[in-house]
Structure formats: structure tokens, C-alpha cells
Simulated assay, not measured.
Amino acid sequence: MRPNARRTTLADIARAAGVSVATVSKVVNGRGDVAPHTRTRVQELLHQHQYLAPVFRHSEAEPVDIPTIEVQFQGGLRSYVAETLEGIIDSAAELGATVVVSKATHAPHWARDLVAAGRRAVIAVTSVYTAAHLNELARSGLPLVVLDPLHLPDSRVHSVGATNFAGGLTATRHLLSLGHRRIAYLGGPSMAVCNQARMHGYRAAMEAEGAKVPESYVRPGEFTYATGLHGAAGLLDLPEPPTAVFAGNDDIAVGVIEAARARGMRVPEDLSVVGFDDTSLAEMASPPLTTVRQPLREMGGAALRTALRLANGETIESHHIELATALVVRTSTAPPREEP
């Protein structure tokens, strides 16, 4: 190839093959989820254009720089985490970056060990970072990007999230539009920023409609199935139980549905339920769950791109990126049953 010749990119191959860049990336990286005829066509074009993946492109004047990003998560590999990781990994494949996924441990000198292992930045998914952790990252020169932060990020931290307040507002307005007035909010940790935003959206919608919010109708917990199961039991034991529950995420919502079923109640005939996230769990629920969609894969991609820019020493003016949420209506919501 001539020194000044323009290199063929994944976008060039995708355009010639009539497929997406993601599909070409899958072929380049040996992924199996591509139709055989499409794979053959893309491989022919890659050979024809003498395409070289970034890892193979080098010369004495242009050394290879394949950035490696550490992605850390805490707790179990829930649907939320899995779908976010998919967005990170797909974006890394497209951009020629390497991703290493690990569980957050924060052992002594953990940030220094990451630098020694060649990491250029850290992406945190559901991981909690204290001031001490941030100080160690700063000393090690490792930038940090937090996905959907549980706590207000330090000014040294970049973060990616979604419009949680708007999502809470939209979910509650949906239930109000169906005729519900006794609506409860069953959420995650009380101090979690995303939980507070969803709860405030709920309260704003209820206040605007003039609907009362008894103290017993707002209950914090964890973003888990168990919170839905046990929290809903408490709500349904109230002298005047809610006719609808807005859950802080899909895991909680599925727990609410099971708690209702255990009492012989039907969803949505006896109780309407709305979740948050729109993970694969929402479609598999019985009944399929009305929920607020967070663009989890897109959020993962945005976090990966931000981490790469920081790793390259770029200055990013905005410390927080918010992507839009949207209500997805399925069959777990309906008008309230008429009182006898």
C-alpha cells in the first residue's frame, strides 16, 4: 500500500456489502452470529480490499496502539449488566480496542496493578467507588467512566446515564392515564442517584395529578427480585393497598408480579406493574412487562467511546452524558378493577 493511500475501513466494506458496520466487525472478529452467505460476501470484500484489522496495521513510523480498557462490575451478572457489557464489547470491536471484564475487588494497589497490566482506562458498571478509590485512580493516571452511577459522581469522574427523572414521570403518567390513583413506588437504594431521580419523577407526576402519595407507598430496597417479592408483600398487606406499582427496575417488577400471583391476584386485572430498564427479562415476564426502556447497549457504547477519548488524553467538556428513555407498553398494565 502506498504511504499516502487511504486505508479501507469497516464502513467501506459495510457499504460495499450492503450490511451494517457491526456485521462486518463480527466477521472480522470471528463471531458466529452472521448468516453464511453474508459472511462469505464480507470475507470476499475484505480480501479484495486487502483490509487489515487494527491489530495488524503497523509500520516503523506508526507504531500500533491498541488501547485496553478494564470493565468492572459488582454483584451478579444480571440482565442489566449483560446488556450493557454487550454494548461495550460491540463498540470495542468496531473501534479496534480491547476490553477486559472483571469483578470489582479494590484490593490494595489495584489501580497500580491495572496500569502494570496495560490498562488505559476503567469503565465501572454497578460498581461503587469511594474517595479513596478515586484518589488511587488519579495517582495511577487511570481515567474512570461510570455507567448509571449509584452516587453523585466526583468531578474527576465521567459518567453515562439515562433520563431517569423523565422515565419515572412517563411511567407514572401512563398508570394515571389508565385511571389508577393508588400507585406505589418500589425502588432501589434510597441514596442511589438513579433511584432518587425515578422516584422524583413518580412524585412529580402524582402531584401534578393531585393524587396522594402515602408514606407507606414509597419503599426503597435493592435493585433485585427479592426486593420486589418482599416489598410488594408489604404493600399488598396495607389496609388500602395500591392498584398499581411502579418498580425501580425490571428485576423488582418481576418480583412484584410473583408476589401478586402468590396471593391469587392477577396482573394486570388486579394489579398493574411497570418496570424500568427494558432488559430481556421484561419480554420474558408473564405477563410481558410494561417498562421504561433505558438504551443499555447504546449507553455501553457511549461509555467505551468516552473511555477511549480519555485514554488518548482528550479533554471532554461534559462530565455526564444522558441518553433518552422511552416507555414500552406491554400487557402488565390495564385500567384498575372497579370497586364493588
Rank of each mutant, 00 (worst) to 15 (best):
N29W: 03
A197F: 11
A226W: 10
V329T: 15
V21E: 01
G18P: 06
S272H: 02
E94F: 07
H49I: 06
N29I: 05
R39L: 11
T227S: 11
A124P: 03
L235R: 01
R293I: 05
L150P: 03
G18C: 10
F223G: 04
T68A: 12
A107P: 04
L178D: 07
D251N: 08
R219L: 15
R297M: 08
L304V: 00
P108D: 05
I252E: 05
I13D: 06
T130M: 13
D12F: 05
A232K: 02
R330Q: 00
P143A: 13
Q43G: 06
E62G: 12
P189N: 08
I88T: 06
A211S: 15
G313N: 07
T40D: 15
S159Q: 03
P3E: 12
A82Y: 03
L229N: 06
P242T: 08
E70T: 13
H49Q: 03
P340V: 09
L271H: 07
A247I: 02
L134F: 10
S79E: 06
A162C: 12
T40S: 11
L175D: 00
V55N: 11
H49T: 12
S102Y: 00
T68R: 13
V28R: 09
G300A: 05
L85D: 00
R6S: 07
A14N: 12
V329N: 00
L10P: 00
V329G: 00
M1G: 07
A82C: 05
E298M: 05
L235D: 06
A205Y: 00
A132L: 09
C194F: 09
S280L: 09
P241K: 01
H151T: 11
S25A: 15
L150E: 08
E83L: 04
D148C: 15
I13V: 14
I123C: 10
Q43A: 15
Q50A: 15
P288W: 02
E62S: 15
Y185S: 08
D65L: 13
S155Q: 12
L95H: 08
G179F: 05
E94A: 04
A192I: 08
G228C: 13
V34T: 08
R78W: 09
S159M: 01
E207W: 03
G118H: 01
P214S: 05
H180G: 03
I257G: 04
Y80W: 12
Q48F: 10
R309W: 05
R305F: 04
H230I: 11
P335T: 10
A11H: 11
L281E: 02
P336G: 04
T105I: 13
V146E: 12
T227F: 04
A253E: 14
G167A: 04
D270Q: 09
V146W: 02
L238H: 05
E94I: 11
E240K: 06
T291H: 04
L147M: 15
E60Y: 10
T331E: 03
E209N: 03
